[in-house]
Simulated assay, not measured.
Amino acid sequence: MLAEILHTLPQVLIDGLTLGAVYAIVALGYTMVYGILELINFAHGEIFMTGAFIGTAIFLTLGGFGWFAAMPALVALILVLVATSALTGFLGVGIERVAYRPLRKAPKLITLITAIGVSFLLQDLVRFVTELKKGNYIVTAPTMFSEQTTIKASSVLSVFNNAQIKSSSIILIVIGIIMMVALDFFVNKTKWGMAMRAVAQDRETAALMSINVNKVISLTFFLGSALGGATGVLFAVQYGTIDPYIGFILGLKAFTAAVMGGIGNIRGAMVGGILLGVLEMFAAANLSILSHGIFGAEYKDVFAFAILIIVLIFKPEGLFGKAVTEKV
C-alpha cells in the first residue's frame, strides 16, 4: 500500500499545489472581508466565477484582432489578468456599496442572507448573458500553455513515478505566489495596509484616529475581488471549461481553507488553501487504496472536510488563528 501511494506522490504534489494556489487566493478574499467586517461574503465564489467568464470573454473578443493574436501568449494573459482584476475589483466595491454597507449595523444573519442572495444573483446573471451570447452556459476557455513537461522523479528515488506538469500549472503557481506575496507585503508594509489592520482591530477607534473606514472597507473588497477575478482567469486557462456554478463549490472549499488556516489571518488562508488542495489531490489518488476499494476518488471532498473537522475539534481557532478571550 505504501509503495502505491509513494508512486503517485510527485503527481499528487504538483496537482495539489496547482489547485491549492487557487483555493489560497480565493480564501484571501473571504479572510480579508471577515477580518474587517466579520462578514462571511458568500458571494466571493461567484466573483471568482465572474472573473473566469470576463477573462474568457476578453480572450474570445480580442482573439479576432491581429495585434492581440500576434502577442506572446504570456503577455496576452497578463493583459487579460490586469483588465479582469480591475473589473471584478470594481464589481466587489459595487456589491459592498449597494448590498452590504446599508446593512452594516444590521444583525449578522441579515448580511449573511444578503450575501447568499448576491451569490445567486451573479450566478443567474452570468448564465443569462452567456446563454444569450453563446446559446449555452458551459463555455470552453482558450487553450493556452498546454505543453507538458516530464519531471523525472524516478531519478531522485526509484519508488517514485515520473510526473507530468503543464505550462499553465507552472504559470498559475508562479502568478499565485506573486499575488500572495504582494498582498502580504501590502497589508504588512504599507500605509493603507496599516489602516486595514487598524480597522480590523477596532473600527470605531480607527475612525477617531482620522482613518476613513469606508474607504478602507472599499479597498478591502477591491483587493479581494481583484485577486478572485484574476484567479478565475487562471482557473479557466488551467482547466479549460467553465460554467456559472463553478464558484459555488470552489468558494465553499476556499472558505473551508480560510477557516482551517484561521479565519481573518491572511497567511493562514494561504497555508490553508495549499494544504486543502494537496489533501484533496491525495484523496483523489489514494482514497481507493486506503479504503481497499470502498471509497473512490469521488469522496475526496468528504476526506478534505473530515480533516477540517478534526482541525477545528482540536484547534477551533484554526492552524494560525489566535484564541480570543471574551471579557464580560
Rank of each mutant, 00 (worst) to 15 (best):
K253Q: 07
G268A: 08
T256L: 07
K322F: 05
V233T: 04
L252S: 13
A258P: 14
K253C: 03
N286P: 07
V324A: 09
G262P: 12
K253W: 05
Y245W: 07
P244Q: 05
F221K: 02
Y299D: 06
G261F: 15
G321E: 10
G228L: 06
V233H: 02
V271E: 03
V302W: 02
F305K: 05
I310T: 11
H292S: 14
I274V: 15
F282V: 02
A258V: 06
R267I: 12
G321F: 11
F303D: 00
A254S: 15
L223F: 13
I309G: 11
M260W: 05
L319E: 08
G261D: 14
V278A: 02
L275P: 12
T256D: 04
G224H: 06
G247E: 10
G264I: 13
G262D: 15
F295C: 03
G293E: 03
F255N: 07
F221T: 00
Y239T: 01
V278H: 11
V311G: 01
V324W: 03
L312R: 07
G296D: 00
F222P: 06
A226Y: 13
P244C: 03
A284V: 10
E317C: 09
E326M: 12
I309W: 13
M281E: 12
T231F: 01
H292L: 11
I263W: 04
K322G: 00
F248Y: 08
V259N: 12
L290D: 01
N265K: 12
G247N: 11
I263Y: 08
L252F: 15
A258M: 09
A254T: 08
Q238G: 01
Y299R: 02
T256I: 03
F221Y: 10
I310Y: 11
E280C: 01
S291D: 07
G229M: 10
S225H: 09
A230K: 07
G318D: 13
Y239C: 02
G293N: 06
G264E: 01
P244A: 04
N265H: 12
E280W: 02
S291N: 04
V259R: 00
A323E: 14
I274H: 08
A304Q: 02
P244S: 06
E280V: 00
N286I: 01
L275D: 03
G264P: 11
S225T: 11
G293W: 12
L287P: 12
G251V: 08
G229E: 07
T241V: 12
V237A: 06
F314T: 15
A323L: 03
F222Q: 08
Y245C: 00
L308I: 03
A257V: 07
G264M: 10
I309R: 04
V278I: 15
I274R: 06
A258H: 05
T231R: 02
F295G: 02
K315N: 13
K327F: 14
A297G: 05
E326C: 03
I246H: 06
G321C: 11
G240D: 01
Y239G: 02
F314K: 15
V278E: 03
